[in-house]
Design a protein around this nucleic acid. Structure first.
Length: 290
DNA sequence: CGCCAGGTTAGAG
DNA sequence: CTCTAACATGGC
């Protein structure tokens, strides 16, 4: 299967992101290829993505799935790499910006590699709250290894993110054992319950305005402005989602503004006024600078 | 050892 | 409404 690519796309830039943690279990990078396991109606599908001549090549190492499943995987990959987004307006805006002009030139074609699964996105964001990214990956690794479904193929393991129905049955103690804080454990179980009882779902939020979707997400304990915007950026692809309180944004701007302290939230807002409509992509490129 | 980390909440003022 | 302590542990 082949997926055509927009001109403003560089596979290698996205690959760089996918390779950032050796503790990642939800995909596997081997050379230029990415392997990922997905679940469709209980059926586990392993696929392999690589790139050739401005196309993505998708293979199925275990078995060729039905045409219907193939269409779903194609859609999944388009979402995953944000291929439907036209980045021309963003690059036009960034070209005149003192900070972004250099970054968008240097990392041209880098896109937000997302999380099509809203539940995964929210739980992952909670895991990342207030701790360093490296430790967040340790928590996720243990969580996925312990409670996610697994497929073994050619002596290698491929994992799915744990499902809400499994996580709601976990106790605080189960999660404390894998180094979650009480707070993270409570939030994780709470979010799982919200998914299980239908309080939130990707379908329910689809099509809402950024403000409305954010408001609905933030009703759930553990989801504040940063987490809500993170998910809106990674799952729903709002180009103007803006995780204002992010420590990475703070650090990047501290460098660009040549401050000897962290910038205040108002100073960050002031910089981002220029990026209106493209806050998510401005954030991505600032993160990339770190 | 000390400071900070891809924050959020509850409670005080 | 705004401000702050508590959360908890690893990375550097």
């Amino acid at each position: 299967m082949e997926i055509s690519l927009p001109p403003e796309f560089r596979y290698k830039e996205c690959l760089h992101f996918l390779e950032r943690s050796p503790r990642e279990l939800l995909h596997k990078v081997e050379g230029e290829a990415v392997y990922k396991l997905v679940n469709y109606e209980g059926e586990k599908i392993l696929f392999k993505v690589s790139s050739l001549d401005s196309k993505l090549i998708v293979d199925f190492p275990i078995a060729e799935p039905s045409d219907e499943i193939k269409r779903k995987i194609e859609h999944y990959i388009i979402e995953w790499f944000d291929l439907d987004k036209d980045l021309k307006p963003f690059y036009a805006m960034a070209a005149n910006d003192p900070f972004l002009s250099q970054l968008t030139k240097q990392y041209y074609g880098y896109r937000i590699v997302g999380q099509p699964d809203l539940y995964e996105s929210l739980v992952w964001a909670v895991l990342g709250q207030q701790i360093n990214l490296s430790f967040a990956y340790t928590l996720k690794q243990q969580f996925v290894r312990e409670y996610g479904k697994k497929l073994v193929y050619a002596d290698k393991e491929y994992f799915l993110f744990p499902e809400p129905g499994i996580v709601t049955h976990l106790t605080m103690e189960d999660l404390l054992k894998i180094k979650f804080s009480r707070q993270k454990a409570r939030y994780t179980i709470g979010i799982s319950e919200a998914f299980l009882d239908g309080t939130i779902s990707k379908e329910k939020l689809k099509g809402l305005s950024l403000v409305d979707a954010k408001e609905k997400l933030m009703k759930i304990k553990g989801i504040g402005n940063w987490t809500a915007n993170y998910a809106l950026m990674k799952t729903f692809r709002y180009p103007d989602a803006f995780p204002l309180e992010d420590a990475g944004i703070s650090n990047a701007l501290r460098t660009f503004l040549k401050l000897d302290r962290k910038p205040t939230l108002d100073e960050i807002r002031e910089v981002f006024v220029k990026y209106k409509g493209w806050e998510a992509y401005a954030t991505l490129y600032l993160w990339r600078s770190l």
